[in-house]
């Protein structure tokens, strides 16, 4: 088994009477891109802040890059890049001053800064301006650069594409790909499902502070039910197909079903005995899988 970049055991956090995260046990391998999905308030940001030691856990333990987060030694954080979901900066500092200061605290040279700035189209004129004059999108770009400029071994990215226009999002996905090729681990929280589908190896789903499931994107898709749409040349009784799965919208000549992968061969065989005109079997999108889990 390879080393874990992140490992949590029974991690939990309460804020007063509010349970933000409960019994999170998770393992993220080195070098993988791990998606962390959940609706607002699911506990994604709380998890990331616990992993960084910004919050003290109410229960459980977390290790990041082989070091217990709760320990006093903070040096391990030099290998971590963090993109907050709502990054705030010092308004009077220029973008360049901000990046210099944060790289200096990181104690690693900002080797990737120039590349990132080029990819995200932040030129030196923009960097010379005070951050208070930046648009939301420019601030988001600056946040991405500060997180990745020092070539971190682990990047914790909290909803990284929030507020980015589609072109910059594409550039960001490219940056994620390059970061992965360098061997870095990326922990990527999002509620934008298609981007997780696009860039992540594995995904965990969180709801109400509880882990719902963990698996690779393909496995998740596989275990979810298929949507089957059958058109018939003659009238059939949709109720006769109910034992294969869940019958959705149906007329005597048009039936929609949700069926498990295991039930699919038997259903297809049965449909073959009927006056079948057309058959469509759709793999669920991650969004559908996600919604089904959350239903």
């Amino acid at each position: 088994m390879s080393a874990a970049a992140i490992e949590t055991r029974g991690l939990g956090k309460t804020f007063g009477s509010v349970l933000a995260l409960q019994d999170l046990s998770l393992r993220v391998e080195e070098g993988e891109v791990f998606g962390f999905l959940g609706p607002n308030g699911a506990g994604k940001t709380t998890t990331i802040r616990l992993l960084l030691g910004l919050l003290r856990p109410s229960a459980g333990v977390a290790t990041v890059l082989g070091r217990a987060v709760a320990e006093g030694d903070a040096r391990w954080r030099g290998d971590v890049g963090y993109l907050p979901g709502d990054a705030r900066f010092w308004p009077r500092f220029s973008g360049e001053r901000t990046l210099d200061f944060l790289a200096s605290l990181q104690r690693r040279p900002p080797l990737l800064r120039r590349t990132l700035l080029e990819r995200l189209d932040l030129d030196r004129h923009v960097l010379a301006r005070p951050v208070r004059t930046y648009s939301d999108g420019m601030r988001r770009k600056l946040a991405i650069v500060q997180a990745l400029q020092c070539e971190p071994k682990l990047a914790l990215l909290d909803e990284p594409t929030k507020g980015l226009d589609p072109l910059v999002q594409q550039a960001f996905y490219g940056i994620v790909g390059e970061t992965r090729r360098r061997g870095a681990t990326i922990f990527f929280s999002s509620h934008v499902l298609f981007e997780v589908q696009r860039v992540c190896d594995r995904v965990a789903m969180l709801r109400g502070g509880r882990l719902i499931s963990v698996g690779d994107v393909e496995t998740l898709r596989r275990i979810e039910r298929r949507r089957v749409v059958a058109e018939f040349a003659e009238d059939v009784d949709p109720a006769g197909l109910a034992h294969f799965g869940e019958v959705g919208p149906a007329t005597p000549r048009h039936v929609e079903l949700l069926v498990s992968q295991e039930a699919l061969p038997a259903l297809v065989a049965r449909l073959g005995m009927l006056p079948l005109l057309d058959l469509v079997v759709e793999r669920p999108s991650l969004e559908e899988a996600f919604l089904e889990r959350y239903r």
């Binding site: 960084l52 910004l54 030099g78 963090y82 990054a87 705030r88 605290l105 990181q106």
Partner: peptide, 8 residues
């Protein structure tokens, strides 16, 4: 968040 997430 930006300071606390660094080795300080």
């Amino acid at each position: 968040d930006l300071i606390g997430a660094r080795p300080v």
